[in-house]
Design a protein around this nucleic acid. Sequence first.
RNA 1: GCGGGCGUCGUAUAAUGGUCAUUACCCUGGCUUCCCAAGCCAGAGACGUGGGUUCGACUCCCAUCGCCCGCUCCA
Length: 525
Amino acid sequence: MQAAMDSMEKIVSLSKRRGFVFPSSEIYGGLNGFWDYGPLGVALKRNVKQAWWDDMIAHHDETAAETGAPSPFDMVGIDSALLLNPKVWEASGHLSGFSDPMVDCRETRARYRADQLVVFALVLETENGGRETITDVLFASPGEAGKSPQDELLAPHRKQLRRILKSRPGGDALSIEAIAGALEDESARARTLAPGATEPGTLTAPRAFNLMFKTYIGALEDSSSAAYLRPETAQGIFLNFKNVLDTARVRLPFGIGQVGKAFRNEINPRNFTFRSREFEQMEVEFFCRAADAEAWYVYWRDRRYRWYVDLGLRPENLALREHEDSELAHYAAACADVEYRFPFGQSELEGIANRTDFDLRQHMQASGKDLRYFDDQAGPDEERRYLPHVIEPSAGADRATLAFLCDAYTEDEVGGERRTVMKLHPRLAPVKVAVFPLVRKEGMPERALGIYRELRGKLDAAYDEKGAIGRRYRRQDEAGTPYCVTIDGRTLGDDTVTVRERDSCEQRRVGSGQLADYLAQCIGG
RNA sequence: GCGGGCGUCGUAUAAUGGUCAUUACCCUGGCUUCCCAAGCCAGAGACGUGGGUUCGACUCCCAUCGCCCGCUCCA
């Protein structure tokens, strides 16, 4: 564990030193939960997003079924606004509980409005006519104090009640006594049995869930102009489902992808960029027939896991974790997380969920607009108008970037010296090739500059002539540059250069005319 | 959000209620150098922020911000 934390510190330190990630607003003391990407970091993150966009959208072949896919399908992209009509968040469920204190049950994962949860004690009438209030266990039930009928409040706890009554002979008739303020009282909460829970003490203290950032549109700051920064990109896709359907000539099954910023006012940002208040998502909402949803869920789950492996994350650091039923959100039929073993623990990179038709149904109801799909391929006995079901692979761009950084970080030994090298996949590496003159004389810099300028038009290249050659190699190792080209004495004679490979430090001589093709082949794609 | 710990150049560090705040690496410029952080010369760079105590605060006190750990939270 100590070694693990050290490695996280090294990654944070290297990020700062080399310009991958900086604390946001650093000269003013930083801002908790916000981070800036430096020159290398922005290149890395852009490459992550580009790889996602290319693999999911731009390079998708809709004319043939991919490996494992039930059928061919279309993929298109959108870029929706950050601020949406506040009604969107009412319909999606993000706004409920925004202003009211909420209470969660850790066991059942249910969430209640604190003012709609009645906590009460049982009052038993004993044989000799006395009354006994049981205080060692309290009960919580949905309802309103003073209004909800006793039977309704007792209903969720029948089993427990029967047991209690049995252990108290004669204590047959019973009443209840509501306890005000019990949810705020830690010791009372510890004794309170939540609806559906098997043991007391699973309720959290009431608190407001201001997870959405609030702002105001226009000059007036009043409730009518309130708006929220989107806490996820998904809703922007659902809102445009009909637009895309009407304009993009797509048929089911098809997916709409979006990459963009989202904001959550997290109570407690932690672990470097892993949980930030401003972050970037890469999401697909994939629409299909209800009958096919399960097959598509499996397809997307497996495909998205493979994506990380293909980009170089070590499989031993990755896990695909299927959620238990108790873990599922109320609208989800299935959900799996792609998790990465970060130095601070195994945590989620991406969630793939079968969201059924929940989102479209919510928006259809709330907006009054018909969002059903007209299926002209449906058989005579089949429904022709229906709401598609949705598979949602939702990935965090910053989390993926952090995972690639962690996974790439390597320390090894070259010629007896310790070396830090970022073994980034060539597709993700900020710089693909660096060009060096071996020494700064005999026309080598001029020759190297010529080669650099030629390469620069084709791929991300860097030029460096400062310091000893070994130092320049090491600098590029820390940036994750997969190839270094060095111009030496032989270049001036036979027009060949050396190409040094990052991970092995091995060199090959390549004719300068073939260099661009050779590198393109090494890097691939 | 609660509890605990910690804030000195980019990184890692040293020292001190009182003169230009130490050292190494990194970084910048130059010299040298024909392949993996060599050497030489020169240079830049810090007491998180605000307030208080004091003749004088990087040092003591308070607040604040940030970071780390545990709990909590995680649509």
